[in-house]
């Protein structure tokens, strides 16, 4: 059985896209394979890792379990849309600064989940950060640098001084 393709339109990172795909294709597949937005990753395709996280109308969801059709007419933000032109988003800047992105495969998912957290809660505690990021798995970093990067990004977004601690970069 081959269901006919349908024409889907969405706004991705502020740009309008139209593309035709079969109904069973997920947003993950269409973003990566049809729109060449390969910054969104996948590690399980079953909702079990968070690598495929994107924002749909501002809410972080798992693109491996959302049909592309369900994103029709919505606003999708991927990692490619996080930076402001050449200027890195504070999350990106501190992920880079602290090494919160080792292989980087999980980073897009973490940063998009964190973006929403910081919008809802500009001054989260470490515990709130843990919780907000508890749908994303990272196998490289041990999460600590990710927590620290989110904390620093929050500070900068609040307009406060955001300098990494000596211990974060040098150990004790």
């Amino acid at each position: 059985m081959t269901a006919p393709k349908v024409l889907g339109g969405f706004v991705v990172n502020g740009e309008r896209h139209q593309t035709a795909f079969q109904p069973h294709r997920t947003l993950l597949e269409v973003l990566r394979e049809d729109l060449d937005l390969t910054g969104t990753k996948h590690g399980c395709e079953l909702g079990e890792c968070g690598a495929c996280t994107v924002l749909v109308d501002g809410t972080p969801v798992l693109s491996c379990l959302v049909l592309a059709l369900e994103a029709q007419g919505k606003d999708v933000t991927t990692i490619e849309g996080l930076a402001d032109g050449p200027d890195l988003h504070p999350l990106q800047d501190f992920f880079a600064e602290l090494g919160a992105s080792q292989c980087g495969y999980c980073s897009a998912g973490f940063m998009l989940a964190a973006k929403k957290l910081l919008e809802d809660n500009p001054d989260p505690t470490r515990d709130e950060i843990r919780r907000a990021l508890s749908g994303n798995i990272c196998r490289c970093t041990g999460y600590i640098k990710i927590f620290e990067a989110v904390e620093l990004a929050a500070r900068r977004l609040r307009g406060e001084d955001a300098t990494p601690s000596r211990e974060a970069l040098h150990g004790q």
């Binding site: 390969t38 910054g39 990753k41 490619e80 930076a83 890195l88 992920f95 880079a96 495969y105």
Partner: peptide, 17 residues
Amino acid sequence: PWRKVDARSRVTGQTRF
């Protein structure tokens, strides 16, 4: 504690796996 030379590409989703 330099940033990694490819840090920017890793945090912007441009690293091509």
